[in-house]
């Protein structure tokens, strides 16, 4: 099979571009720790309300400028619906669902993850400036899915 010279140049260009893309992703993952939310932890979905710390969801200060936020995504609301965290702190969210699959998306940030019953999802974020963010469920979870939202208040 004969491969046309122009095609060879075009394919080389295409493959080099792809390798560059992958290189950028690999560098970001290794040096900046930019990896997708891949927390691996199971929880009995029938016992979320009895399992600490999800029995008492909310914000916990765990260190200097370190916060943990536990959220239960239960159709059709987030518990707690209002989450207050200080600006500039490292905030780690832990979210689980006792019923169906939900989404946990804070608009205008990179906190965007699926919440799967039986599993705990986690993501860390630093909110740089004070203000309010819309927290919403971005996976269809039922007839009232569009009422499932909350507020992140950055102080």
């Amino acid at each position: 099979m004969h491969i046309n010279r122009v095609e060879r140049i075009w394919m080389t260009f295409g493959i080099v571009a792809l390798v560059l893309f992958l290189g950028v992703l690999a560098t970001a993952a290794i040096s900046e720790g930019i990896i997708p939310p891949s927390h691996i932890q199971t929880i009995d979905p029938a016992k979320v309300a009895q399992t600490p710390p999800f029995d008492n969801p909310g914000v916990r200060k765990v260190g200097d400028k370190e916060y943990e936020v536990y959220v239960v995504a239960r159709y059709p609301a987030f518990r707690p619906p209002l989450i207050s965290v200080p600006a500039g702190a490292n905030v780690t969210f832990f979210v689980t669902s006792p019923d169906v699959v939900h989404g946990f998306f804070i608009t205008n940030t990179d906190v965007n993850m699926m919440v799967v019953p039986g599993w705990v999802s986690s993501a860390t974020h630093v909110f740089r400036t004070p203000g309010e963010h819309l927290l919403l469920c971005n996976e269809y979870c039922g007839r009232e899915h569009h009422y499932m939202y909350g507020t992140i208040e950055v102080q």
């Binding site: 992703l25 997708p36 939310p37």
Partner: peptide
């Protein structure tokens, strides 16, 4: 399933490579 719990980031990476393939 990039945004999902329960799947190690390494596997997501492998599938990213094949996706570009």
């Amino acid at each position: 399933e990039f945004m999902e719990p329960g799947i190690a980031a390494g596997w997501k990476w492998v599938h990213t490579m094949t996706t570009y393939g």
